[in-house]
Design a binder for these strands. Structure first.
Length: 182
DNA sequence: GCGACAG
DNA sequence: ATCTTGTCGC
């Protein structure tokens, strides 16, 4: 079982972010896993396949939400920064847990947040997107500031902890992976 | 050396 | 991330 080929799947879901949050396109891609998971080096593992999924997209998004960090990273260059730069699009990191930084507890009210500080610098926000659930870690990735990033993430949330586009991308990937595995 | 550590 | 059923709480 040591030479088993492991496949990696990625998914992108495009939404409108106007009056309604409406799904307008989906894209997936897969390929061989080529890099291990090492904290701080996530983009080396995920970016290649993620970029494959983005290439199939017909729409060209104004802003992209990533399942990972933006500048809240040891070298200020998380997945959202890295892929946002390559795609030259506004990008926001929306991670489910902390990689670096310290923060104070967040009030239990949707929209409340506390600054995520790392090496004497604000690198993101720990944002409450749903009551009675752990907050998420929002950080600018590319061509965006923290204030706007927070506003966009809150607009993209539909009552769930995870912003809807990210949540749907996750569900999409699991669906496709399961179909492929059968 | 010890602990922390996106997915 | 993944293993993995039911179950406790809003």
């Amino acid at each position: 079982m040591t030479n088993m080929v492991i496949f990696f799947f990625a998914g992108v879901v495009v939404y409108t972010l106007g009056k309604q949050l409406e799904k307008i396109e989906e894209s997936t891609a897969f390929g061989r896993e080529r890099f291990p998971y090492i904290p701080g080096l996530l983009s080396f593992r995920e970016a290649p396949i993620l970029l494959k999924a983005f290439k199939k997209l017909k729409n060209d998004p104004d802003v992209i939400l990533f399942d990972g960090q933006g500048i809240a990273h040891p070298r200020h260059f998380g997945l959202a920064s890295h892929v946002g730069l390559i795609l030259d699009r506004r990008a926001i990191g929306c991670a489910k847990s902390r990689l670096v930084g310290e923060f104070r507890s967040v009030r239990n009210v949707v929209g409340a947040y506390s600054k995520l500080c790392y090496k004497n610098e604000v690198v993101g926000a720990v944002l409450r997107t749903k009551i009675n659930t752990k907050p998420i870690f929002v950080s600018p990735g590319h061509k965006i500031n923290l204030t706007l990033a927070i506003r966009i993430v809150l607009k993209a949330c539909n009552g769930y902890r995870i912003p809807e586009p990210v949540r749907q991308a996750h569900l999409l990937v699991n669906k496709v992976r399961k179909e492929y595995t059968q």
